[in-house]
Design a protein around this nucleic acid. Structure first.
Lengths: 340, 340
DNA sequence: AAAAGTTACGAAAACGGTTTCGTGTTAATA
DNA sequence: TATTAACACGAAACCGTTTTCGTAACTTTT
C-alpha cells in the first residue's frame, strides 16, 4: 500500500511550502531552478498526480459530462454514446452515463444528482415518458442554473438549447422514393405507437413521398405496433390482409421481423416485397438478404453533440452564442432487401 | 439565471454562521428549533443541495465508480454495463465509463485519469491488447494505492481481486452434449484467434465434451476466424470442405454467419446442421430459425460485479476480506437452430 | 449567591489544490 | 552608501462542506 501523495506531503518532506511545490510543478519562474528540480524529481519518483476533486472544487469545473439516454442496449444509442465518449475523452473530459430507462422520474432524479457539481454539462435524449408528459421543467431548471444541455435525436422545441437531430423526414421520403423508382406502388409503413417525434417525422416523410408522387394514402397500409412485444401475429395478419410490395420500417427490429414473416408467407425479398429499415446495426448487416437501411451515423451525432457541449462550456461566461441545431444527414445503405 | 446556492449564501442571508446552517440542515439538536425552521425554509425555497464535489473532497469518497470496457457496441458488454449501472445507481453511485477500444494504452491512460480522485473503484474487462501483452502493472499500481478493482469476463490470474466470470467451459460442454444427444457426431467449433481466456475456455469445454463422449478430435473441424472482417469466404470453404452436422460458435455473429452460409449452401438448419452460438442478443432472437444460444446473463454479471465493488468500498478500511470469484451460470436457450 | 450544567451558536481546521500578495535577501543602480 | 530592483519563497485566502471544540448566556442546583 502506497497511498496517493499530496502537495502537502511533498512540501513537508522537502521542507518547503505547499505553494512552492505547486508552483515548481507548474514550472513557475518564481521558483529557482534548483528547487524546481528537487521538487520535480521527488514528485516524479512518488508519481504525484494532482487530485481531480480538489481541482474541480477550485476551478468550479469537473471536466465530466453527463449523458442521459433512455436505453443502452440499443444499437443507435450505443453508437451515439461511443461518439460522445471518443470526442469527450480526446478533449480531456470523462463521461458519466445514466440510463433513464424511458422513465421520467429516473431522468429527473439522475439529472438532479449529477447537477449538484458532478458534471459541467449534459447530453441527453429524452425518455419516452418525458416526451409523453411533455414536462421539461427539470431541463429548464438546469438551464436556469447555467448548466448547458445538448439534446440529440429525441428533442423538443420547448427547450432552447443546442440540438443534434437526424433528417428523419427527408430520408424517409428518399427511402420511399427508392421503392417507387423500383416500381413499387403499394408501399406500407410499420411504425411505433409512441409519441416519439422521430417516428412522427418518419411517417411524415413517408406521406410526403406518396404525395409527391401522386399516390394516395391508404391507412390500411400503415401498421402501428405496440412497444416491445412479440408482434409476429400482428405483422403476419398485416401482410396477409393487404397487398403490399414494399415496406418501410422505423427500426431494424421491425424490418427483420417483417422480413421473417414475409419469407414465411412464401414471398421473396426483395422481388415480391422490398424492405427498408432504420438503424444500420448488426441485424441489418447479418440478415439474409442483408437489409437496405437508413444509417443514422450515431457516432457522428454523438461527436457533434459532444462538440456542441464542450464548445459552449469552454466559451466560458460569454454564453450568449445563439443555440444551434445540427442536422445529421442520414444515408440510405442499399443492400439486398430492395431492388437496384 | 439563478445559480446554485451555497451554505455561505444562506449563512450570510440569514445572518448566522456557516456551521449553524450546516448543522441545521442536518437536523442537529445543537440548533434551536426556531433557527432550524428558518434555515430549512430558506434552503428549501432556494432549492439548496450540497455540492457533490465539496462532499467528495471532505469525505474522500466520490460515490463514482469507473467502468472500463473494451467496447460498448457489443451486446454482452452493453448488458453487463446496464447491470452495473442499475445496481450502482440504486446504491447511490454514479458510473463513469471509459472505452478501452481493445487498446492497452487507452486502458492505462483512462484508468490513471480516473484514479486521481474521480472514482472510488473500478470494474473492468481487460482489453484484447492487455491480454495479449500480459502486462497488468497498471492494475497492480491501482490496487497498491488502495483502489479496489473488480474484473469481469476477461480476467487474469495475475491480479488478486474480486472477479465475476462465466462458466464458459462447462456451458460449452453442455452445448456440445446437446448436439450429441440429438445424434450429431461431426461437431465443429468456430472460434476467434485472439488470446481471450473466454475463447480458450469455450474451446476446452468443446474438447472436453468430445472426450467425455469418446469422440476423437478432428482439428479440421475447428475454424479460427480473424477479428472483425468479412469471414463469409472462410466459413463457406469450411462447410464445403468438411462434413459437419453441428457447429458451436463462440459468439452470435459467427453463429448467424454460419447459418447464413449453411442455408446458402442448400442445407437445412437444424435438420442437416445444428447451430449453437454464444450471447443471447438480437441476432439470435430475430434470425430464422431463431438461434439456440448460450445466455451469458450479462446484467446479472454486472450487478454482481457492482455489488462486489460496493461491498468492498463500503467495508471501509477492514479491507482484509478475502477476494472472491463469482461464477455466473450461463444457460442454454434452446431454440430453432438445434433439434429438440 | 456561587457552582455547575444546558443551550445555542460561532471559530477554525480539514479535505487538496491554485493564486495573489507580501517580504526577507541579495544584486544592481545612483 | 543609500535606494531600488530582482529573486525566491511563504502566508493566507479561496473553492463548499463537515465537524470538533470553545464559549457566552441562561438555567438549574445547592
Amino acid at each position: 500500500m502506497k497511498p496517493k501523495i499530496t502537495l502537502k506531503d511533498i512540501a513537508k518532506e522537502l521542507d518547503v511550502s505547499i505553494s512552492t511545490v505547486s508552483k515548481a510543478l507548474k514550472n513557475s519562474k518564481e521558483i529557482s531552478k534548483d528547487t524546481k528540480d528537487r521538487i520535480k524529481a521527488f514528485a516524479k519518483f512518488y508519481n504525484y498526480r494532482p487530485n481531480n476533486i480538489a481541482l474541480s472544487l477550485k476551478n468550479k469545473r469537473t471536466k465530466n459530462i453527463g449523458v442521459v439516454i433512455p436505453d443502452i442496449v440499443h444499437h443507435f444509442f450505443t453508437t451515439v454514446f461511443r461518439g460522445i465518449e471518443m470526442y469527450a475523452n480526446q478533449m480531456g473530459y470523462n463521461v458519466i452515463v445514466c440510463i433513464s430507462d424511458e422513465s421520467f422520474d429516473k431522468e429527473v432524479i439522475n439529472m438532479e444528482m449529477l447537477a449538484n457539481g458532478s458534471i459541467d454539462g449534459f447530453i441527453l435524449s429524452l425518455s419516452a415518458e418525458t416526451q409523453r408528459k411533455n414536462d421539461f421543467t427539470h431541463l429548464k431548471e438546469l438551464l436556469d442554473q447555467g448548466i448547458p444541455i445538448v439534446l440529440f435525436d429525441r428533442v423538443t422545441e420547448e427547450i432552447a438549447c443546442d440540438k443534434v437531430i437526424l433528417n428523419d423526414k427527408v430520408i424517409s421520403t428518399e427511402a420511399v422514393e427508392h421503392f417507387i423508382t423500383a416500381g413499387a406502388n403499394k408501399i406500407a409503413l410499420v411504425t411505433t405507437e409512441n409519441f416519439f417525434n422521430v417516428s412522427e417525422s418518419r411517417k411524415e416523410g413517408y406521406l410526403q413521398a406518396l404525395k409527391d408522387n401522386g399516390m394516395t394514402v391508404n391507412q390500411d397500409l400503415i401498421l402501428t405496433l405496440p412497444h416491445s412485444l412479440d408482434n409476429t401475429n400482428l405483422i403476419t395478419e398485416f401482410f396477409q390482409q393487404n397487398e403490399i410490395d414494399a415496406v418501410l420500417c422505423v427500426n431494424e427490429i421491425f424490418a427483420v421481423q417483417c422480413m421473417s414473416v414475409i419469407q414465411q408467407l412464401g414471398y421473396n425479398v426483395p422481388n415480391d416485397i422490398s424492405i427498408i429499415g432504420f438503424t444500420d446495426g448488426i441485424l441489418s448487416k447479418y440478415s439474409s438478404p442483408k437489409l437496405t437501411t437508413v444509417a443514422q451515423h450515431g457516432e457522428k451525432m454523438g461527436e457533434k453533440a459532444a462538440k456542441f457541449l464542450i464548445d459552449r462550456m469552454e466559451s466560458l461566461e460569454m454564453e450568449e452564442a445563439p443555440f444551434k441545431t445540427e442536422i445529421i444527414n442520414a444515408t440510405l445503405i442499399k443492400r439486398g432487401s430492395t431492388i437496384n
